[in-house]
Amino acid sequence: MAIVRVDEVSRHYGEGDARVVALDRVSLDIERGDYTAIMGPSGSGKTTLLSILGSMNPPTDGRLLVDDIDVYALSQERQADLRREYIGFVFQQLELIPYLSALENVMLPLAILKESGKRERALDALCRVGLDERKARRLPSELSGGEQGRVAIARAVVNNPPIVLADEPVGSLDQTTGRQILTLLRELADGGHAVIMVTHNPESTAEVDRVIQIRDGRITCDERPEICTLPEEEGEALPVGGVAG
């Protein structure tokens, strides 16, 4: 069973003449262990799709099923629970909380839980991304870009969620650091997480299993990366491969 099922999802903004169709009847399934890149030019709808997958942006039509749960049929409170249990986020600018140490940033999703062992779990997550206890005590501003990226990934997986969403995770990083982050995401997928990454950079798709291209709110390609790539940022040629809706 797919961990994520997007079923005929549409998202419109505005009304009347100002109506903008961000997504138009998009459907897709994502399995555990999939490393998927969502690509497309600016304004194509890829970020909207990511926010809908993240249970933060209700679609105008259609359903999002996570582990067979109809996410947007849940109350706001339950959606928050679902985010915490099922979804880890890696944000575009990493969005580490500047006044919390690396360890505290990783503990952030656990802070609202009344359970013991939170510190140990956070330290373990940091260890998995290659950061030791000494680094854990530092503020984000005292870490390198790569280390900050690792902290962001550790925060995303500290709850061991089946889904990890990454929004342009290497967009603000140098090439070497970016490559390290992409490798870490690959390792997460190999470890059984469904990793979904939004990117506009074809180079970021080197290690992904699958590329979903979006244009004008519709999936134009859903294939292996070597088949389904955009020739350029605002590419004109459609790739070979399955074309959805």
Partner: peptide
């Protein structure tokens, strides 16, 4: 920052 809190599962 509040958006991040909400994204990681914080309720209203």
């Amino acid at each position: 920052e509040i958006g991040v809190f909400r994204a990681v599962g914080y309720k209203q």
